[in-house]
Design a protein around this nucleic acid. Structure first.
Lengths: 239, 239
DNA sequence: ACGACAAGTAAACGTAGGTTCATTCCCCTG
DNA sequence: CAGGGGAATGAACCTACGTTTACTTGTCGT
């Protein structure tokens, strides 16, 4: 019997419950501190001391809540993935039945999670090396899982004739990558685009490659965003 | 007067030249060893000892050729970028005048460089933190520079009326990202795709979003690759 | 008020790994 | 053969950091 099962067996103890709650709160605090510290000094690797300082606690305390640095790191990363898992499907459901609307909602939600956890996202790429094989597997599997809403939306859209018959898994992962790009290449994109503009442009670009040509006219509002504002000069287009 | 200038002033000294050549050779050897060692034990951070062992030299020797670990890392990364800078423009030139052909050549060349240096590429994401600000800036600027061929091809294609009027910088960077994805998410893509198939699919997908609708019919050979082989089952497409 | 137990602290420890340096090796010239 | 100088070695050094642990503080029931 694991602790969780035991707790479920006796849900009445208020003392136990209160302590659990405070423990959760502390965990969150530490997690947030860890996320924040890598936001500030993005260049150095994250040291336990730095996390402790950020959270205004002592180093030793972290070890009461997390088994070690690996576990803390893993927790930060999983925290992001949980945000995907709870946010994206909800956004899709709220978007109605139209496949394009649903895809737009899913992608938008995905991007917004990234924006919320921008630095934790790059952490996934930077520090996943220091995790053991089990941790890495867990992250990979969870990441694949978070793309399932996108895959579903794409598949439905294809079956409904709104999208071209592409490989949904591949396209979904491409969308994931483009979303990650906002975190990974932030120094590049922020030079010319705001977050919202970036999302709109990327979505428009993707939809141009996805939507079945005959359906185009119904979705012009999604498709216009990525066009350049200035016309391409006076050169005659007929080559 | 720096050493290079001095050497240029007396190009006749064969002794000096021979030494320079041997020095270069050793540098390459160490660089290759560094690249290889992170290929083998991809998970751990790369230790100087490991690099030394791989190159069959002593640790101390590395410091005769590189100022320290940072410099070695930077050299490995710049080495990849140099490959882009020398390979991609050549491929574009060899591709003729057609904008789509040129883009396909540029993207293909880009991807092939990534494949050649797959592990060094993920290194760029993983370890760039341990570089100083100057090193990181250098990498960023060089990276932007390597996308210029793509930007040029896109811009020309737009002016020629072959591509839709998109933002060339953004699309170019998306292509770069999709190419990097082969290295970053190799564990995912390799499950279902060979390298060549992946490149073809990605290119096809991108072109579907790029090519001016009226020009489509001329480029069907590029556009078919990303279609699913099996028809989407017997579900009636009319929703 | 007083033990008892959880919550929290900070100094000490251990070690991995980057860097240095005294020494040895090797080749070339006189 | 001698000796000089660059190439190469690897053991010793040093620092940073993850982890442990002996200790202090706070809280609660009786």
């Amino acid at each position: 019997m694991n602790p969780a099962a035991l707790e479920a067996a006796m849900p009445l103890d208020p003392d136990r419950a209160a302590r659990e709650a405070r423990k959760m709160q502390r965990s969150r605090q530490l997690l947030d501190a860890a996320a924040r510290v890598m936001e500030r000094e993005g260049s150095h690797a994250v040291s336990m001391q730095a996390v402790a300082d950020e959270a205004d606690v002592s180093v030793g305390l972290i070890y009461r809540y997390f088994g070690g640095k690996d576990e803390l790191l893993l927790a930060v990363i999983l925290n992001v993935l949980e945000d995907f898992a709870s946010t994206v499907p909800a956004a899709v459901e709220a978007a109605g039945d139209d496949p394009v609307e649903r895809l737009a909602a899913a992608f938008g939600a995905y991007c917004r999670v990234i924006e919320r956890h921008r630095h934790a996202t790059v952490l996934t790429y930077r520090e996943s090396k220091s995790l053991d094989e089990a941790g890495r597997r867990r992250i990979k599997e969870y990441e694949v899982e978070t793309t399932q809403p996108l895959v579903g939306v794409l598949r439905d859209g294809i079956d409904a004739g709104a999208f071209r018959p592409v490989e949904p898994e591949m396209v979904a992962y491409n969308l994931l990558l483009v979303a990650h790009a906002w975190a990974l290449k932030h120094w590049y994109f922020e030079r010319t685009l705001s977050f919202e503009d970036c999302v709109r442009n990327q979505l428009s670009l993707a939809l141009h490659g996805l939507i079945e040509p005959r359906q185009r006219r119904r979705y012009t509002r999604f498709l216009e965003a990525s066009e350049r504002r200035s016309r391409p000069s006076t050169v005659a287009p007929g080559s």
